[in-house]
Measured scan of single mutants.
Amino acid sequence: KKSYVLIKVKNPKTKETHTIVVPEENLEEVLKALASQPNVKVVDIERFP
């Protein structure tokens, strides 16, 4: 059974918020990819039960 993680990201320029759902096993690479985006800020990470 896969567990999923909900990542909320915000664009500081446009103030838009997006929610991305990723499998927990991919969380680290997704966070690394997001960290390299200049106008993306991770605001929240939630685990799915």
Score class of each variant (00 low, 15 high):
P12K: 15
P12L: 15
A35P: 01
E16M: 11
E28T: 07
V42A: 02
P38D: 10
K41V: 15
R47L: 08
T17S: 06
V40K: 04
K10L: 15
K8W: 11
A35C: 06
T19Y: 13
V22P: 00
Q37P: 02
I45Y: 05
I20K: 02
E29F: 09
T17E: 10
L31A: 01
E16F: 07
K32E: 07
H18Y: 15
T17R: 06
Y4H: 08
F48I: 13
L34C: 02
V9M: 06
K41A: 08
D44N: 15
S3E: 12
K15G: 15
E24M: 09
N11L: 06
V21C: 14
P23Y: 12
E24G: 04
V40A: 07
L27F: 04
L6Y: 11
P12R: 15
K13G: 06
P38V: 08
V21D: 01
E28K: 08
K2A: 07
P38Q: 09
N26P: 00
K15N: 13
K32G: 04
V30W: 10
V43T: 06
H18F: 15
V5M: 05
R47A: 07
N39R: 05
E24Q: 06
A33S: 10
A35L: 14
P38N: 09
I7Y: 00
N11D: 08
E46M: 13
T17M: 11
P49A: 06
P12W: 15
E25H: 07
K32S: 07
K32N: 07
V22H: 01
L31F: 02
P49V: 08
V9D: 00
T19I: 13
K1Q: 09
P23F: 11
T14R: 04
P49S: 06
V40H: 04
V5H: 02
I20Y: 11
V22S: 02
H18M: 12
D44A: 14
P12F: 15
I45V: 07
T14C: 07
K10Y: 15
P23L: 15
E46D: 07
S3A: 12
V30T: 07
K41G: 03
K32D: 05
S3M: 13
T14E: 03
V9T: 05
A33M: 13
T14D: 03
K41N: 06
L31Q: 01
I45P: 01
H18V: 11
T17G: 03
F48N: 06
V21S: 06
Q37T: 09
H18G: 04
I45F: 05
D44I: 12
P38R: 09
V9I: 10
T17V: 14
L6K: 15
P49R: 04
P12T: 14
P49E: 13
E29H: 09
L34V: 03
E28V: 08
F48K: 05
V9W: 10
T17A: 04
Q37N: 14
S36M: 13
V40P: 02
V40L: 14
V42S: 01
V22W: 03
T17N: 04
E46N: 07
F48C: 14
Q37K: 10
K41E: 13
T17L: 10
T19M: 10
V43G: 02
P23N: 10
P12I: 15
H18W: 14
T14Y: 04
E16N: 06
E25C: 05
V5A: 03
K8H: 15
V5C: 05
R47Y: 14
A33E: 08
N39C: 07
V42G: 01
Y4K: 06
L27I: 04
V43E: 04
K32F: 06
I7C: 01
N11M: 04
N26W: 14
V22F: 02
E24F: 09
P38Y: 03
A33Y: 15
L31W: 02
P12M: 15
L6M: 14
P23R: 10
N11P: 01
S36I: 07
S36D: 08
V40W: 14
S36R: 12
I7D: 00
V42K: 01
R47G: 04
P23T: 11
P23W: 14
K1E: 13
E28S: 06
L34P: 00
A33V: 09
I45M: 06
I20T: 01
V5P: 01
N26L: 14
E29Q: 10
